[in-house]
Nucleic acid binder design. Structure first.
Lengths: 351, 351
DNA sequence: CTGAAAGCGCTTACAG
DNA sequence: CTGAAAGCGCTTACAG
């Protein structure tokens, strides 16, 4: 292994001079600087990360705590991970990915051993067990997902309440008067997935305010249950003309369900989902949707985290809570309600 | 920050004794051991990872180099990542996830700075630019994906040739005599994605051996192109009775395509794909498929990597090349060919 | 502009 | 069974 000592010797200077020449942290004569650089290049020198971390108390690594829960839709997670990882790199940081089931334990491990300079938490729940630990940790943390208590951390999330209102208003403007809402599975709520009820409550309230009949159901996260529950919901409410989807798994399953019933959007049913454009393109989902912006959320969280890391200790800026205003991406799946009500469940019926 | 010095002082012993008591690397009296452990617990001691890495030349971190390529289907990647990350943790390692576009550069960074004890490369291509660097690195590496030259690394992959033969033989046994094959997009091949032609060539050859007419096409990785190309293929070959899918994006798009044409599998068309069971369940893909086993491949790669890391330098065991025998998961989408040929493209026709 | 030295927090031969 | 010391490779005050 080639060390800074080797570089110093090759360049005929002291180790400190070699270090300064490479870092540029104090002025070094042109000539020496060139000799050192040349030696480093020639010997293929890279500073030892552990040694540097020990000396500077900086690892240039951020921790990313992701959880894969049975009742959530895994593919959506990938985009958050990419957003975080790519942004971290752009700031000169590497990413330690932790997928351990026991997130609190994992968080303690990586923070108290100083493996990371800061931490991004994905999939944050209302009373997230990782938060008390994060607040005690010496490193700053940024969250994607809104917890009950935001003290001591920077928080980024979609504004799910505004998203709920936007869905309803969009349908209301098109003159729909009876809507269906499919949320995430009920366990997600029980586990503290606050975004579920933030969206749901907003939808319920706005529907009431607009004089719209609303039938709200919890969905499923897995096939074939998702499809069955969609069928059941459509069967139960044949006069509903619009469908709001808070649930990515339901959105992915909907095209088959519509086909099986001989329905088309927006001709027979107007549909609005809530997922990313990337997701829509990957699975060819033809429904208008509220962009969930996973890459942007990851990027914002990391950028803020890096600011905290690099900002001097004392100058504590107040913590940030940023809820992104929802945007509706129009893919043409909404329109005025049909004149006649849908025919009820016709397996494979003609359109 | 609480250091081993603090523990030593609290327990009234030297730092070395404290270290040994915690690591158990030499015999320490019961009593002292207890005092040290108690002190560590009380003060909440965790060894500093950087300091430990510097002293031991071990980081207990493995690097995971993933690439997200436009012409590949991103959701499939997540399962590899989880397999690697979970297995690493089970062995006591953390995972540094690198998604940088320039994989070779990233590999050099993390290996030469000794951020990791070993490296797993995902998505390995025929003449992978990362391999020469990996061979020069001081850390061992394990690959998921078969490169042209396996020297110096451990390699794990699905046996794509056997998979191709299995697909054809399965259809042949059911008396199909004309088949369609949809591979990955052609750019994947151009880029050196060897698994594409390994599967394709084996299918072509086996079809010839069995006297089967085969129409092989490259697919697309994105909607709506995927769907269009499937339609075009089905239009072009109305007498083909079986469809082989090497391409996950095509598999995800197929249900809509079949619905739109009023076709059902296996009644009108027998279908075999190549993707994981997890993938099938997430997207409710009703097609029999050859299990691509991403979690198992990730697990095997990491387990072997850990063995290399922990094995003493000299005792170089020969490198491993392991190709998993394909397994067909039957989801009931294959059967005997229909008596009458398919009617050609009928948009929304009755079944 | 440059060098000698201390120190980051750990582990592990070396001595007793 | 235990302690004092060296060393891992770096950075950065301290001195000139």
């Amino acid at each position: 292994m080639v060390t800074i000592g080797d570089i110093a010797r090759a360049a005929g200077v002291s180790r400190s001079t070699a270090s300064y020449a490479l870092s540029g942290k104090r002025s070094i004569s042109e000539e020496v600087q060139e000799r050192v650089r040349e030696a480093a290049r020639e010997l293929g020198y890279t500073p030892n990360a552990g040694a540097r971390a020990l000396a500077t108390a900086e690892t240039r690594v951020i921790g990313l705590l992701a959880r894969f829960l049975d009742d959530e839709f895994a593919p959506a997670m990938l985009q958050y991970i990419r957003g975080v990882s790519d942004t971290a790199r752009a700031h000169g940081y590497d990413t330690l990915l932790v997928t351990e089931a026991d997130g609190a334990r994992a968080l303690r491990r990586i923070t108290s051993s100083r493996m990371v300079d800061g931490v991004v938490l994905l999939n944050v729940a209302e009373g997230d067990a990782r938060l008390p630990l994060l607040r005690k940790a010496p490193q700053p943390g940024a969250l994607v997902g809104l917890p009950g208590d935001c003290a001591g951390v920077d928080v980024f999330d979609l504004d799910f309440e505004a998203a709920g209102r936007l869905m309803v208003d969009h349908m209301h403007r098109l003159r729909h008067r009876e809507l269906l809402l499919v949320s995430q599975p009920e366990h997600v709520v029980e586990r503290g997935g606050a975004y579920v009820w933030r969206l749901r409550d907003a939808v319920v309230q706005q529907a009431r305010a607009r004089g719209i009949r609303l039938h709200a159901a919890f969905g499923e996260s897995r096939q074939p249950e998702v499809g069955r529950s969609l069928h059941a919901l459509l069967d139960a409410h044949p006069t509903a003309t619009g469908l709001l989807l808070g649930n990515e798994a339901a959105a992915a399953a909907l095209p088959s369900v519509l086909h099986a019933r001989g329905l088309a959007a927006p001709r027979d049913l107007s549909v609005v989902g809530r997922y990313s454009d990337e997701f829509a393109r990957t699975f060819s989902l033809p429904f208008s949707s509220i962009e969930s912006a996973p890459d942007l959320l990851g990027e914002l969280a990391v950028s803020q985290l890096v600011r905290r890391i690099t900002t001097p200790e004392g100058s504590e800026e107040p913590h940030v809570l940023r809820l992104l205003p929802p945007e509706l991406v129009d893919r043409g799946s909404t329109g005025p309600p049909p004149a006649a009500p849908r025919t009820s469940s016709v397996q494979g019926g003609t359109p």
